[in-house]
């Protein structure tokens, strides 16, 4: 079972790399597709890619870490972004952030051990009129009160199969 799974990751990487072979600036395009497929760039995949493209792993990581877009860690099933932009901050976003941390028992930039939630503090989600704002995957929650956080998270926790 394990080896078929491994093969398939390898084949997927090969297929993606193959599409962009010998094209200038292909590394970024390939990494985009990898992240689209896996949700992040797993180390195993980066190592495979390095061999497949004959590009040093050092170069791959230099690119991944240069751009904020690329992720090296597995995202959660639900990614929580707590806005810490100016408006949200003034409206008490740090208390919201603390509440999420306490409830999930994780810090910023961490994922819960069950892989359900990942928490990030971000700068401005672009809807300051709704401050303070949190975003879970693509859904925005505006004018959030500290007391509501538990209720919001509970709805997602229910989805845990």
């Amino acid at each position: 079972m394990e080896s078929t799974k491994e093969m398939s990751v390898k084949d997927q990487v090969k297929a993606i790399a193959g599409q962009w072979r010998d094209r200038e600036g292909n590394l970024i395009m390939i990494l985009h597709q990898i992240q689209g497929k896996f949700g992040y760039v797993p180390r195993e995949v980066a190592l495979l890619l390095s061999r497949e493209l004959d590009v040093p792993l050092a170069t791959i990581y230099e690119v991944i870490t240069f751009y904020n877009y690329f992720k090296l860690e597995k995202p959660g099933k639900y990614n929580i972004a707590v806005c810490m932009g100016t408006a949200c901050y003034l409206k008490g976003a740090s208390q919201i952030l603390d509440a999420v941390k306490d409830l999930l028992n994780i810090d910023e930039g961490e994922t819960t051990p069950d892989g359900m939630f990942r928490l990030d503090a971000v700068r401005c989600l672009g809807c300051c009129g709704l401050a303070p704002v949190i975003m879970i995957n693509d859904r925005i929650y505006g004018k959030v009160k500290k007391e509501q956080v538990m209720e919001i998270l509970a709805a997602y926790k229910k989805n845990k199969e």
């Binding site: 792993l57 050092a58 230099e62 870490t65 240069f66 090296l72």
Partner: peptide, 25 residues
């Protein structure tokens, strides 16, 4: 490490004020 020795053990990760030397990952 990369050009003179072709070893590629060291890389320059992140950017701006967070730039740092480290092996990949």
């Amino acid at each position: 490490c990369q050009e003179m020795q072709n070893v590629w053990a060291l890389s320059m990760l992140e950017r701006g004020i967070d730039t740092r030397i480290s092996p990949a990952g």
